[in-house]
Amino acid sequence: MSQLIEAIDLVKHFPVGKKLLHAVDGLNFHIDSGETVGLVGESGCGKSTLVRLLTRTLDITDGHIRFHGNGIGLIPARAMAEHPLRREIQMVFQDPTDSLNPRYTARDTIGESARLLTETRDANEIRRMVEEAADHVGLPRELLDRYPHQLSGGQKARVGIARAIVVKPRLLILDEPTAALDVSVQAVILQLLDRLKREMGMSFLFVSHDLNVVRLLCDRVMVMYLGQIVETGKAAEVFARPLHPYTRAMIASLPGGLTGGQASDADLLIGGDPQSPIDPDPNRCRLLGRCPRGTDLCANSAPLLQTWADGRSAACHFVTP
């Protein structure tokens, strides 16, 4: 498989007074064509910043982003609205209610995306594209002329997905697409995403903190903690045998546990809150203070992300393959 998008030493710092908040701190990863990658981590770990960097709506501080081999990291966020690449990377947002224009019908919402991001100007052609996208996401055509308040949560989620796929992007970034949905609808939307992935051959970056959903939908998973990737690997393997203490803690925290998981109470994090992301000590493990295994070594040297032969990687002094 070829690499669709690749991040090399990606960094984003935000100035806070005279200090710097390290939101994304030296990330290296790639997403292959047709692959579904889950990005998990707690709030404030930099997931959303990373998404904004990849969609080029936020300028990077340092590093590179390659999309199909072309560097896109230096496209200024301001110029992205007009850039031909914009249609290649599309997003589905968290709350289907907040992310739809209340004064647009479903048809307007989906059509706007088609009109702005493709060269098509022919009204009939746009109508055809909108209806095709609606069919793809299982949105009945008779609902296309309704406004968001006339649609149910699941239907609004479908509109949000249709808006993103109408321009046939190569990378679809989904930011907690099921968090605002009821369990009764969640399953349908997940199955829909799984079908779209197979039918349209898109790559997905699936951002979520619902590990159970990531486990069911994703090929590979990346775990982020305070701006850094602490573990990656095939989703099935990471969930069956988590290596990094933070991943273990997340899995141990899941109510009801996971099938195949073998985490125990001893894996739970002890301290409640993460360290401050403002000017973190570069020679100190960022999990230290919460980690059940932390030692002096962790206070004096930050572990690097190591990769083993089986394609798994983790950033911890105490992990052996």
């Binding site: 709030s43 903190h209 590990l211 803690a249 997340m250 925290s253 899941l254 109510p255 739970l268 409640g272």
Partner: peptide, 8 residues
């Protein structure tokens, strides 16, 4: 809340 906080 995050899963780790939720558990706590």
């Amino acid at each position: 809340l995050d899963v780790t906080t939720q558990a706590a």
